[in-house]
Design a protein around this nucleic acid. Structure first.
Lengths: 224, 224
DNA sequence: CCTACCGATCGGTAGG
DNA sequence: CCTACCGATCGGTAGG
């Protein structure tokens, strides 16, 4: 899932993209200079232009690639079943797994959307709306079928999406929370959110323990 | 709640802070020039330095003010009752109301944390941890008392906080969703998340209608 | 609060 | 992939 497009280009070009992704995630797009990227790769600044047309192109590639992966994963989840509950579970799990596995990409896609020049920004905004619609339709279908209860399908789907997006902010693979456990926990919470209450079996987790090892990407802090 | 500190200074100074807040929210801190701020206020760029020491100081003021307001609201919510369910409801409602009412502030506080120089950044990160702890402790207490069921207090509180943060991204006061309704809806969802299932009375909302008028701050798009 | 201006940074190009 | 370098931008200061 989400094999780096860069792996088809020269190794150097792939390294440039990886360096850009990492720096955009940790410092921000505008705070990252072409010099920073070149240093990371071990070449001189101007040499980057042998691999890439502009700094903006690097951002476009990172965000486009991310949105395509996200949408593809969601489509697969939606196609996998006709059962609404199963669909919601899989859509949420795909969402969560993506944000855990591709934290930097998701983080950049969220924070640097404004740094995208037209027409790229508008295209990505459309893709994001489409992605949100995918979640909302499942919630609406469940409500119509009487299997979900929710005050507002719109608010419930925003809440579900936003809690998943937050994962990219604090999740750390080394932190001890396994991606699968995270996906299951969030799917359970999403189901509860829409009025289905299986919840965890009371002895499924260790409630008081919290889950260790939450660190932070870049500056991490959260809330505001 | 959260009266602009600027209102104590000269009207011009207040205008400078307001312009900075608005521009930081819509364009980002780095993308905003002192020239932009001066234009908005109707003075020349260098004249800004009669009101403010630096661009960074403007960001520090915005974010500090925001964190103080957020923490004060949370403390009031926590002090208001000993009942854990009531506390969670009020903490979530305060969180949601703040992110709806002070969207720009919350947005800037979240997105521009990295743009803060030391020691400001570290201080704000500590405040954010404190804020998160406030939510987590209520969840932990509820679990210990047996009134909440959750796999992980940590994950549940992150989910609750993150869904509220998301509000700053899409909420529009003109959008037709009233702040109070938003707060109630999110408090209900938070309760469900921790295993309490009152949910809305089945006829409390219009499920299929979604809620109209969700727009976007700055570029808005979400997810990524 | 203004004009004049500085010093530094930065994305990108020229021309090998 | 490199050296040399340009043009533009920008935060901030000098000195009224």
């Amino acid at each position: 899932m989400l094999r780096h497009r860069g792996s088809q280009a020269s190794p150097r070009t792939a390294a440039v993209r990886e360096a850009a992704l990492d720096l955009f995630a940790s410092q921000g797009y505008r705070a990252t200079t072409m010099q920073d990227i070149a240093d990371r790769v071990g070449i001189r600044g101007p040499s980057l232009y042998k691999h890439v047309r502009s700094k903006q192109e690097l951002l476009v590639m990172v965000i486009d690639h991310t949105m395509e992966g996200l949408l593809a994963d969601q489509r697969a989840a939606l196609r996998s079943s006709d059962d609404t509950v199963t669909q919601l579970i899989r859509v949420v799990e795909a969402h969560v797994r993506f944000h855990a596995r591709h934290r930097r990409e998701a983080f950049v896609g969220n924070r640097e959307l404004d740094a995208l020049e037209e027409p790229h920004r508008s295209r990505v905004v459309r893709q994001r709306r489409q992605y949100e619609r995918g979640v909302r339709r499942v919630v609406e279908k469940g409500i119509a079928q009487g299997v979900f209860q929710a005050r507002s399908a719109q608010l419930a789907s925003y809440a579900i999406i936003d809690m998943g997006i937050g994962i990219a902010t604090w999740f750390r693979p080394e932190g001890g929370v396994k991606e699968a456990d995270l996906a299951y926990a969030y799917a359970d919470m999403a189901l509860r959110l829409v009025g289905i209450g299986p919840g965890p079996s009371p002895d499924a987790g260790e409630p008081g323990s919290g889950i260790a090892g939450v660190g932070s990407l870049a500056s991490s802090g959260r809330t505001g």
